[in-house]
Amino acid sequence: MLKGEQLSFRYSPHHSWVLQDFNIQIAPSEIVGLLGPSGFGKTTVGKLLAGYLAPTSGSVTVEGQPLPTRGSCPVQLVFQHPELAMNPRWRIRQVLAEGQSPAPELLQALSIDSSWLSRWTHELSGGELQRIAVARSLNAHTRYLIADEMTAMLDANTQALIWQAVLDYVRQHEIGMLVISHEAPLLKRVCDRIIHIE
């Protein structure tokens, strides 16, 4: 169980609260949607749960344990913009290897062509890069996946392709998911339940 309890966050005492007393629970194999307009702290929730930000108060636990500070994190985050989530000086092969070389079946499900591996990141399109980012995040240590507007910038076909591969993988490996999006039809399609932030 991935739990966020009484999560509050602000950047400093001079800033106003981005998030206050937010509670969330995600069970293994459960897919939870987080729906709401921008500026309501959706991204902050994702970053707190994945350990990118430390909550000002409250706690995040995975199976009752706090998030590890070193080693591979069991909660992985996929960003909206894959081009920012990759070292621009690397080839795709290196980018994938950073996630401890994902399973070949996953690469195939995401239609990742082997010819991409020798390319630089700027040579692939956004949709192709996001497939690489997803593959990198779904490694053997990953228990929970947080998708923050993962396919908001992609065309419908690439969106469906990535989601089908991700859904298959998380079902097979009993991974819990938080899907952050402003698109209600997408959340209705992929999620078991949806939390609305207003």
Binding site: A50, Y52, C73, Q76, L77, L84, A85, N87, Q100
Partner: peptide, 12 residues
Amino acid sequence: SDYVQLSSKLGR
């Protein structure tokens, strides 16, 4: 940057 933060979450 996203990719450096992500790198540490991948266990680096």
